[in-house]
């Protein structure tokens, strides 16, 4: 067993898979020599050579676009975008090509590619370094979207993403990159994409979260359970394709539902989740399904960021409201 934090687990996953499959290539801005600005690819160039792990020029469209070409022609690119806020120049390639190639070529050409990027607020960063953009990918047919919340899941999901036959957007909650360590098996293992995880069973309320929010929700639950409530907590892990069964089954049992996310409220992931609950477990509901989300504003710079992020208190208050409805 290794003991790793989340970013080390990602490095380890890349390392293990590169060792097993020599069609894997890893690249992006500052990814090769330096090992990435967060050091997610540290040591890979040294170990596997410049051909397999390299720095690109500063151009996201080219990182994604050339990755698509490589994937069509037999390689498995795992590319890094330095921050999710800088994915937009590459978004055109992601949406208009990576997502559609299988369909456009009726299966003759495919894009087995992983697009990694750190995302999320709460790190007191500069502009464009804090957004949560999962719905911009989840809304696009042909893309899969994965978000780990623990080192163990990060490794297993990364390996699953690399082995997936379709493009996978791998969003990394950078707020918890180094927040805690966990035992992680040395060898390769897979956590299936599309499968949520019940972190904790309970009877009175189902709460769904993912990424860095998982820990905030756990903290809120710990307080609330002292009041005698029993809460079921689900880590979604894959945003798309979404694990509807696990959520619906849970709500059928608890009768109450709350989703907590860092992304802005309007047209956010919560809207989709609540619809799933309404469609699948409406007659079991004892309270209106609820979302806890960030307001519909631009993520503020550090001196205003505390107004933005959903915190433990908000989560606790909202959960209580739903429990006592």
């Amino acid at each position: 067993m290794l003991v790793l934090n989340l970013i080390e687990a990602i490095t380890d996953a890349l390392d293990v898979e590169m060792g097993l499959d020599d069609s894997i290539v890893v690249f992006g801005e500052d990814v090769g020599f330096e090992g990435g600005v967060f050091r997610a690819t540290k040591g890979l160039q040294k170990k596997y050579g410049e051909k397999r792990c390299f720095d690109t020029v500063l151009a996201e469209a080219s990182i994604i676009g050339s990755g698509i070409g490589m994937a069509i022609n037999g390689l498995k690119p795992v590319v890094e975008l330095q921050f999710s806020g800088f994915m937009f120049p590459g978004y055109n390639q992601i949406v208009t090509h990576a997502a559609r190639m299988r369909n456009r070529s009726r299966g003759a050409y495919t894009v087995p590619m992983v697009i990694r990027m750190p995302y999320g607020a709460g790190v007191r960063a500069l502009e464009h370094h804090s957004e949560s953009l999962e719905v911009l990918f989840a809304h696009i047919a042909g893309l899969k979207v994965v978000i780990p919340s623990t080192p163990y899941d990060a490794k297993g999901l990364m390996i699953a993403a690399i082995r997936d036959p379709d493009p996978v957007i791998f969003l990394e909650p950078k707020r918890i990159y180094r927040a805690f360590k966990q035992e992680v098996p040395e060898d390769d293992y897979v956590i299936p994409i599309g499968k949520a995880k019940i972190l904790k069973e309970g009877n009175d309320l189902t709460v769904v979260s993912w990424g860095a929010m998982v820990r905030d929700v756990q903290n809120a639950i710990a307080i609330i359970e002292k009041e005698g409530f029993s809460i079921e907590h689900i880590d979604l892990r894959t945003i798309s394709p979404i694990d509807r069964e696990t959520i619906i089954e849970s709500v059928k049992k608890t009768g109450r539902f709350v989703v907590v996310h860092e992304a802005a409220q309007s047209f956010g992931p919560g809207a989709e989740l609540i619809t799933i609950v309404n469609e699948g477990a409406f007659l079991y509901l004892e309270a209106p399904p609820t979302r806890i989300a960030s307001p519909d504003i631009i993520v503020p710079l550090p001196k205003g960021e505390h107004h933005y992020l959903v915190n433990k208190n908000t989560i606790k208050d909202e959960l209580e409201k739903v429990l006592k409805y």
Partner: peptide, 28 residues
Amino acid sequence: SGFVSLEDVFDYTYATKTKLLEEQYNNI
């Protein structure tokens, strides 16, 4: 200079605050 006010993080989203933003502002 301290912190940025709650007004400031909301007020420049649009020329006029939408109803939804008004509600979110009040909640926070």
